[in-house]
Design a protein around this nucleic acid. Structure first.
Length: 423
RNA sequence: GGAGGAAUGGCAGAGUGGUCGAAUGCGGCAGUCUUGAAAACUGUUGAGGGUCACACCUCCGGGGGUUCGAAUCCCUCUUCCUCCGCCA
């Protein structure tokens, strides 16, 4: 959520920047400013009314104390009108403030200046590419065939016990998955991220805090009996750890990592591109989250990008990095880099990580602040990234490491797996 | 699930109708003293709205009510603690 003060002061530049997202924000912005003005004028009027009635109440108190009950009763009558007026103003104020809030929720984050304009993923800008694309033998298979051939992932079994998009990992497949989680967590810890184990269900406030609510309600599984949401990413519980906090500058940087399953309804996603591990309702992910001083957040973002690069290098997977264009940029993000691994057998790029700076957009909702050198509260910056998302990394490994003898295990994972080939 | 108790500033903890945004202690910050530090002493120290700046307004778990006036009384929700039951 953008700060109203920021909108007041930078109306034009915000509208211009939002054009990169292909939206004309001018009507929304005007509406917001109108409501803001209305809110302030009601507030001012109500404050004056309350001030008046506070004054009278004090006088009444004094009069009673000094035994002048009669005079006090005269004043009492005067308060009745004020009371009614302030009650009505209070109602107006609530309505207007709610309306303003709802409007603010609809405005996406302002893209960073480096974000290219564009409509879709076609317009994302490739900024880096590394790793050799292996030459596979004749008859190389996509991962869903490999999964069947080596009996390591069973999609049908998942359908039986839950439904489509909930795979069952078996034997060496399950072990490889667990190895990846441990390996990722170790790499993140090495880089100074503190490992956290967090709840897999969150309340409504947390959903609002990171921006899943109110707009992306349909993407999350909702447990109605208890009004809780299954997390779509560890970003939600981990970032909300500091909801409402006022930190001091010396608390930065705050760096967390966490492994969680992620649950996504993915309503409306069908077709060939969602086969196998490409798109699931439940999948595992290791996330990194940072809270930063605004002056350092872009440096932190670069650091996160380098960190993910290192992991992919160690895994020896061919990958590229995209700078997302305005049209493909997430609602809450100011700048996002996507990592994609090349799946040789599918002959396509698979997104495996998304690293973003949200600047103050989430912090404003979270009320996550810090005291600056003058002792004033300022909003912090929040960032997060996958490090990494499991299923597509797994898909990339299965497909790129397949040989006639079986699927080789990347060297760095062998100690975690306890075997070096799936055959 | 049943019965009681509680929720106050970063923490601890007073406050049971007006002079309370809130005593006191700890912690934090600044200063005095000191070669420096510690100790001691002095001062300062919640958040938000509003204003050029003041004024002023709101907030004592959330919501509602009583009253001229609520941290304080009433209703309701949530959370926590104790005891009993059940159970991983």
């Amino acid at each position: 959520m953008l700060q109203i003060q920021n909108i007041r002061e930078n109306k034009e530049s915000i509208i211009t920047a939002l054009k990169k997202r292909n939206i004309d924000a001018a009507p929304m912005i005007s509406k917001v400013l109108e409501l803001d003005e209305k809110r302030r004028s009601i507030q001012t009027e109500m404050d004056a009314t309350l001030a008046e009635s506070n004054k009278l109440s004090k006088e009444i108190g004094m009069l009673f104390k000094t035994g002048k009950a009669q005079e006090a009763n005269v004043l009492k009558e005067k308060t009745a009108g004020l009371k009614e007026a302030s009650k009505k103003l209070g109602e107006d104020l609530n309505t207007t403030a709610d309306e303003l809030q709802q409007e603010l929720y609809l405005i996406p984050n302002v893209p960073h200046k480096s974000v290219p304009a564009g409509n879709s993923e076609e317009d994302n800008e490739e900024i880096f590419k590394e790793g050799d694309i292996p030459t596979l033998s004749e008859g190389a298979l996509p991962h869903w065939e490999l999964a069947k051939k080596y009996d390591i992932i069973d999609f049908e079994l998942g359908v039986k016990i839950t439904g489509a998009g909930f795979p069952v990992y078996k034997g060496k497949g399950a072990r490889l998955q667990r190895a990846l989680i441990a390996y990722f967590l170790d790499k993140n810890a090495e880089a100074g991220y503190t490992e956290m184990q967090v709840p897999l269900m969150v309340n409504e406030d947390s959903g609002y805090g990171t921006g899943q609510l109110p707009d992306k309600e349909g993407q999350m599984y909702h447990v109605q009996a208890d009004d809780l949401y299954l997390i779509p990413t560890a970003e939600v519980p981990v970032t909300n750890l500091h909801r409402g906090d006022i930190l001091s500058e010396s608390d930065f940087p705050i760096k967390y990592t966490g492994y969680t399953p992620c649950f996504r309804r993915e309503a409306g996603s069908y077709g060939a591109h969602v086969r196998g591990l490409n798109r699931l309702h439940q999948f595992d992910k290791v996330e990194i989250v940072r809270m930063e001083h605004p002056n350092n957040s872009y440096e932190a973002l670069d650091e996160m990008v380098e960190h993910v690069k290192n992991i992919l290098r160690e895994l020896k997977l061919p990958y590229r990095i995209l700078r997302l264009c305005g049209g493909d940029l997430g609602f809450t993000s100011a700048l996002t880099f996507d990592f994609e691994v090349f799946s040789t057998a599918q002959d396509r790029w698979l997104e495996i990580s998304s690293v973003s700076n949200f600047e103050t957009f989430q912090a404003n909702r979270l009320k996550l602040r810090y005291k600056d050198e003058n002792g004033k509260s300022q909003l912090a910056h929040t960032l997060n990234g996958s490090s990494l998302a499991l299923p597509r990394v797994l898909a990339g490994i299965l497909e790129n490491y397949q040989t006639e003898a079986g699927i080789k295990i990347p060297e760095v994972l062998v100690p975690y797996c306890g075997f070096d080939i799936i055959d």
